[in-house]
């Protein structure tokens, strides 16, 4: 193994990749400006998720970190609001209630009338179902995290850049590369619980869903490491160096692009 190859496999490279993903985005800096403690815990959680995924063992400190993050995220949490409609939705509901035809089932001489309009427009379960669907749509969208919600910008909301889009394919590789069976508890803590929290919490649309940051960043790091392993397979050191430099250059160019897009 020559010097160049040793350099590629050095632990410092591993940490560089971690730092590149965790600090090479506009979101973390915004989180830091909002709350330094949250920013620190978010980074620590990212690291702990990576460690846990690599060992397929849930780190206890990670649970504590998430508990703290959940506590910090409680502002705006509104569980009671899930079946409440605003004025515009109420008008639509009243209009829709009138549109249903009478629905009945006739068995022999017996007729059972089904209150379809009430069931599908008014029942709290139905309202909660559609609200949760809407809320999940707000947070389960790669465009929100990698393209400042473009091309689905919401009216009246300033959409903010989060991760550079160059990280998206690597995030996907990282995410789908996880062994879900072995790491079920880590995925539950880092991804499923935050998602449920954000969906059920019925937060206002301009909220920063920073509780999801560690998992996305961790998947991004895994994806970058996978890409690195592909680069390492190449026997030509020149190609390895060139690929790495091009990637880093592109990464920073995209971060600059994100920054400039946000400025105006």
């Amino acid at each position: 193994m020559n010097f160049r190859e040793k350099t590629f496999k050095a632990p410092a490279v591993k940490y560089f990749l971690f730092l590149l993903v965790v600090f090479g985005n506009l979101w973390i800096w915004r989180i830091f400006t909002l709350n330094f403690i949250v920013g620190t815990i978010v980074i620590l959680s990212t690291y702990l998720i990576l460690v846990s995924l690599k060992n397929s063992k849930l780190n206890k400190l990670l649970i504590i970190c998430y508990l703290v993050l959940f506590l910090f995220s409680l502002k705006g949490f509104n569980l009671t609001n899930i079946t409440k409609l605003d004025k515009q939705q109420e008008v639509l509901q009243i209009q829709r209630l009138k549109l249903y035809p009478p629905v009945k089932i006739t068995i022999g001489t017996r007729t059972i009338w089904i209150p379809a309009a009430h069931w599908l427009e008014e029942r709290p379960e139905t309202l909660a179902f559609f609200r949760l669907q809407h809320n999940l749509g707000e947070v389960l969208d790669p465009n929100l995290y990698f393209f400042a919600n473009h091309p689905n910008e919401r009216v009246g909301i300033t959409e903010l850049e989060k991760f550079p889009y160059i990280l998206l394919p690597l995030f996907l590789i990282g995410f789908f590369g996880i062994n879900f069976r072995k790491n079920l508890n880590i995925i539950a803590l880092g991804f499923v619980l935050p998602l449920i929290f954000l969906v059920v919490g019925n937060f206002p649309p301009n909220i920063e869903p920073f509780i999801i940051f560690p998992f996305i960043a961790a998947c991004g790091v895994l994806g970058v490491e996978y890409a690195k392993s592909l680069v390492l397979k190449n026997k030509n050191s020149g190609v390895k160096i060139a690929t790495t430099l091009v990637f880093i250059l592109l990464y920073f160019l995209v971060v600059i692009q994100n920054f400039l897009s946000t400025k105006s």
């Binding site: 389960l140 969208d141 790669p142 465009n143 929100l144 473009h150 091309p151 689905n152 998206l168 692009q257």
Partner: peptide, 14 residues
Amino acid sequence: REFASQFVNYFSPR
């Protein structure tokens, strides 16, 4: 950016 955002939008769960 424009192309990638549109492309990803076709696979977005949202």
